[in-house]
Amino acid sequence: MTRMAAAGNARTDHVARNRAHWDEERAAYHAPLARAHWAQREPTWGLWATPESRARLIPEDIAGRDVVELGCGTGYVSAWLARAGARPVAVDVSAAQLATARELREEFGLAVQLVLADAERVPLRGGRFSLVISDYGASLWCDPHRWIAEAARLLEPGGRLAFSRRSPFFAACRPEEGPAGARLLRPYFGSSRLPHGGGVEFTLSHGELVRLLRENGFTVDDLIEVAAPEAGARDYPEVTAAWARRWPSEELWKATLTG
């Protein structure tokens, strides 16, 4: 194998690794939790369940519009969009996760088109969608240089990109195992690709992400750095609520395709 080929494989091996990771996670990825998400009347975003009434990731005029969810997992965001009157297409690399989405689609009777595909190379016509959205999907598990370019290709002029992701500050404080602590464990710069179980996560610095969005024709409309709520927040293996009340563990982005 040539050095160039090896480098190319290293850049794209995350797709197969993440597919295997989420295929294996299906049984553990909480069918009851997925069902509860499908049943929600108001969307909530990220680990700390930021309500849509605060986040406003979904445009108010979404009814009757084509939208696409990249890295949909069990498809709950697309379910919320369908309930709001949109025409959602839900894309995921894991057949097992889409099997759960298919079961819940039948149970709830919502019109959601499911597509098995890598969100970095989506087999859908470009310039068609009013909204591209990702809740810890492509926004975390895909190479941002690839999936953001795909989002720009899929959107119509003036369309919105909305996504949640981990904070780069959290990524710098996160150990290989266990929750984030109060020490910086890796560089803020140049550490976009991080292992997670059998998969690979991506987290760019704020400056890198803003430049990447601009290079792909986006204007950034808002960035919400989310703090864990004071009451009712659970702890996660990778971050405790107490930590996330002091430092940002996740954030919500909104951008408009302007050119």
Results as ranks from 00 to 15, higher is better:
Ala119Val: 06
Trp80Cys: 08
Ala95Cys: 05
Arg121Gly: 05
Val91Glu: 05
Val89His: 07
Ile58Asp: 10
Leu98Ala: 14
Asp66Cys: 03
Leu47Gly: 09
Val67His: 13
Leu110Lys: 09
Ile133Ser: 04
Pro88Ala: 07
Ala119Arg: 04
Gly126His: 10
Thr50Ala: 14
Arg105Cys: 12
Leu124Pro: 03
Gly64Lys: 07
Arg54Ile: 12
Gly109Pro: 03
Pro51Leu: 05
Ser78Glu: 04
Arg65Met: 10
Thr74Asp: 02
Val93Trp: 04
Leu70Pro: 11
Ala101Trp: 09
Asp118Trp: 13
Asp61Pro: 02
Glu107Gly: 00
Asp61Ser: 10
Arg87Leu: 12
Arg125Asn: 00
Glu106Tyr: 02
Ala99Asp: 15
Ala99Phe: 06
Ala101Thr: 06
Ala119Leu: 11
Val93Asn: 14
Leu104Arg: 03
Ile58Val: 15
Ser134Val: 12
Val93Cys: 14
Asp92Leu: 12
Leu124Met: 11
Val122Gly: 03
Arg102Asp: 15
Asp61Met: 01
Arg87Asp: 14
Leu110His: 03
Val112Ser: 04
Gly73Trp: 02
Pro88Cys: 02
Thr100His: 05
Leu98Val: 12
Gly127Gln: 01
Gln97Tyr: 14
Glu103Leu: 04
Ala49Pro: 00
Pro51Glu: 11
Pro123Val: 11
Ile62Asp: 05
Val68Thr: 08
Ala82Leu: 08
Glu107Met: 01
Val91Met: 06
Arg65Lys: 15
Ile58Gly: 04
Gly127Glu: 09
Pro51Ser: 01
Ala63Ile: 04
Leu47Lys: 01
Ser53Gly: 15
Ala95Pro: 08
Gly75Asn: 12
Cys72Asp: 09
Ala84Val: 04
Gly75Val: 02
Val112Pro: 05
Asp66Thr: 11
Gly73Met: 08
Leu110Cys: 04
Glu69Tyr: 03
Leu57Gln: 03
Asp92Ile: 13
Cys72Asn: 11
Thr100Ala: 01
Ser78Phe: 01
Val132Asp: 08
Val132Pro: 13
Thr50Gln: 09
Gly127Ser: 04
Glu120Met: 13
